[in-house]
Design a protein around this nucleic acid. Structure first.
Lengths: 142, 142
DNA sequence: ATATAGACTATTAAAATAGTAGGTTTATAG
DNA sequence: CTATAAACCTACTATTTTAATAGTCTATAT
């Protein structure tokens, strides 16, 4: 029941982009350095995020990546789903035919409750919320 | 972010034991047949549950497994933790030294929120709750 | 032109997962 | 006392996923 590094790194990269929203593109190299992720691995994550439509890329010198929407319009759920795939704790919630017991399975209801609890958090929070948290935490420090 | 089959099967096995609580031991063969799990694989799961103290075993003919406490004293969290290991969506929540950014990491707070939401469900529900749900769902059918 | 930066394709080492196989021990029923 | 039922124990294995790494190709700003 662990999240992949893909999602951990990816969310940090998106937060980095959100912190720079409106200030031009960020390069992989810069993000990777700040977040201490391998250049090449981050490249793959950015490709995933680009395919999902969350970020846009600009090629060539002075290129890089930008968010395709303002941070307050990006729910965490979108980011994590893009990176991690559909957020089902068990296969049978997504594909009932996966298990012949689905119709009457009581444990399946439990997993539905768990899923709902998780999604509740990820739908209630957007990238701007995280940006704000970063800024207040930086003020506290200063 | 998927639960292992270990946990899915294991919880179903524990629920099976809970449904028969007080009526003597259940054999692996019987549980495996009802839940459509391989005998040998279920055997491993029962060993895990036994090591964690959730079930007790009786050897020899007419032996089998029983819950070591009444169903209303077994929270789902105990069962899942026994099978799945500690329920941390990211390593750095459990071991802050895992990542050098932990102190100031805002995404880490998100994962803490997600964890709290999940654990909320798993701590609020016990095995007797599931037994009750099975019984009401059976009554509805009849 | 040329340097910069993303895009694409392939490979890989390590770990986890979901089993399978087969023999050993223990307790009970007859 | 002996046959048998059942848990117990050790080992193996095929598959998948993960987290990268490597190298080449393409677009573009200056």
């Amino acid at each position: 029941m662990k999240l992949s590094s893909r999602s951990r790194y990816g969310l940090r990269a998106v937060l980095d982009l959100a912190l720079h929203y409106g200030k031009g593109p960020l390069q992989i190299r810069a993000i990777a350095a700040r977040e201490e992720i391998s250049n090449k691995y981050l490249e793959q994550l950015m490709t995933i995020l680009k395919t999902s439509g969350l970020v846009r890329s600009l090629r060539g010198p002075k290129g890089g990546y930008i968010l395709s929407k303002p941070p307050d319009q990006i729910k965490l759920k979108e980011v994590i789903t893009a990176l991690e795939g559909p957020l089902f704790p068990v296969e049978c919630l997504q594909h009932p035919q996966f298990c012949p017991h689905c119709a009457e399975c009581i444990t399946r209801q439990v997993w539905a409750d768990v899923q709902e609890a998780m999604l509740g958090v990820l739908e209630a929070t957007n990238m701007q919320d995280l940006v704000d948290r970063v800024k207040t935490s930086e003020n506290r420090k200063a």
